[in-house]
Design a protein around this nucleic acid. Structure first.
Lengths: 248, 248
DNA sequence: TGGCTCAAAGTTATATGATAATATATTGAA
DNA sequence: TTCAATATATTATCATATAACTTTGAGCCA
């Protein structure tokens, strides 16, 4: 192979490469990671650098290593899917509609939860951030801002407004999910999965301190997006099938 | 300091030590991580070992490093709180009722979501696992099984039954959360935060395929636990205040 | 012939020391 | 006073050597 990776930081580049190789199945249980010495040759790097990269990946649950047994890919259920890097690798290189549906299903639970909390605890600055995101979305509809960025900003603002560290932790996750959701579906429809008006309902409820209304509005918002995604997936699955049968 | 750490694996032990030191605030933005050379002296280890440990921690978002700038602790919002190690360090060494409330708030959204999904997609084996966990809880009430383990087994079984990788990913998170929830509250009450009967309602709804009923039952279950935890926290806060004022 | 013990080999773990890259601070000049 | 160049401290990378630890297999004994 001899894939000399270059970037500002060799260790991170190699960790990235191997990480991607793992999630795309280049390395797997059936096709195990080569031993250190061979990896050094493949990536043309010294052993310490390679070991540091491998340690980063073991910290993310992708790899395991033991003396004499070598280095191996962990079973998929040990991967830290909520780690932004791991999720990024998975989406960037091995995107699948199933994955998109799975994390939209998760957003369907998480974001209403965050919105409910936000309505009871958000302070003035956090509410201002939410309002500002809505204004940006409206501006985007007039062509004065980026539709994707403003949409993401809104969801991130709500997560932060929950004043719950675990929800706040999911901002990276949600940004990524949203970016890919839209990238996948905007070929068929406008760039939004839901209207600005629907987003504004959520914002208004949070700012008014109406907890259950905020949660419910957010739930409807994501439910709508999820159904749209499921429908598109069903359609393209049908298309794939008819394309295959058409060849016969 | 010279804290020679010994264990079967030096690198992991050191990563653990430093990880705990970070989350407990021994190292912080104000009191930065010493330079590599000093860390080597403190932990009596070679530079490669130390660098590998540091790389594991940067992979978990706890540290950052740049040439000439040294190694520093990342702001807390960059920590991967959903990483099982990070969460474990935080709970094991710096437990706080606030943290307990925060992740119970998150469970309040996540687990009903998982239960809802599970009701529509769980297969026979997954339903059997849920039933089995309920049986174990009943056995525990008769003294024939462990109350804590059986309780955890139930929640884990539901998450897995959702057939959603992101929910499944949260099993470690939930086990930890539950273990600490109970450890914190069982001094005051029986070991359960909610009755076996309430758990069984969730299980029955999932097995019957009643999605919204399953979600709602699970929501009630955790809502109950959350209120109990909040009440206990308010009480002990009062106790702390009166103890302090009593001393004056 | 089967099982147990022990030894050897292969692989990761740890150590040492040296060189390169880089960002910051300092110093000097404009 | 400001900007640029240079010095310096720190991480990044490299090369190599030794240790520790399983796994495997061979040999021996029952």
């Amino acid at each position: 192979m001899n894939t000399r990776v270059r970037g500002q930081n060799l260790t991170y580049s190699i960790a990235n490469h191997i990480g991607i190789a793992i999630v795309t199945g280049v390395y797997s249980a059936g096709n195990p990671i080569p031993i250190e010495a061979e990896l050094c040759r493949e990536y043309d790097a010294s052993r310490p650098v390679l070991r540091e990269a491998v340690k980063m990946l073991t910290a993310k649950g992708l790899l395991g290593a033991r003396p004499r047994r070598g280095t191996w890919v962990q079973p998929e259920d040990k991967w830290n899917l909520l780690d932004p890097d791991v999720l990024g690798w998975l989406l960037e290189r091995k995107f699948s509609p199933t994955l998109l549906i799975e994390f939209t299903e998760m957003r369907l639970a998480v974001e209403p939860g965050a919105a409910t909390l936000a309505a009871s605890v958000a302070g003035p600055e956090e509410k201002a951030a939410i309002s500002h995101a809505i204004e940006r979305m409206q501006a985007a509809d007039r062509g004065d801002d980026d539709p994707l960025d403003s949409d993401i900003a809104f969801h991130v603002a709500v997560l932060r407004a929950s004043r719950n560290r675990f929800y706040a932790q999911l901002t990276g996750f949600t940004s990524t999910a949203l970016r890919f959701s839209i990238r996948m579906t905007n070929r068929y429809k406008g760039v939004r999965l839901a209207s600005v008006a629907d987003h504004k309902k959520v914002a208004d409820a949070i700012i008014a301190g109406k907890a259950s209304a905020a949660g419910e509005a957010m739930r409807r918002l994501i439910q709508e997006a999820l159904e749209l995604i499921r429908k598109r997936e069903a359609q393209s699955a049908t298309r794939r099938v008819s394309a295959v049968s058409g060849h016969r």
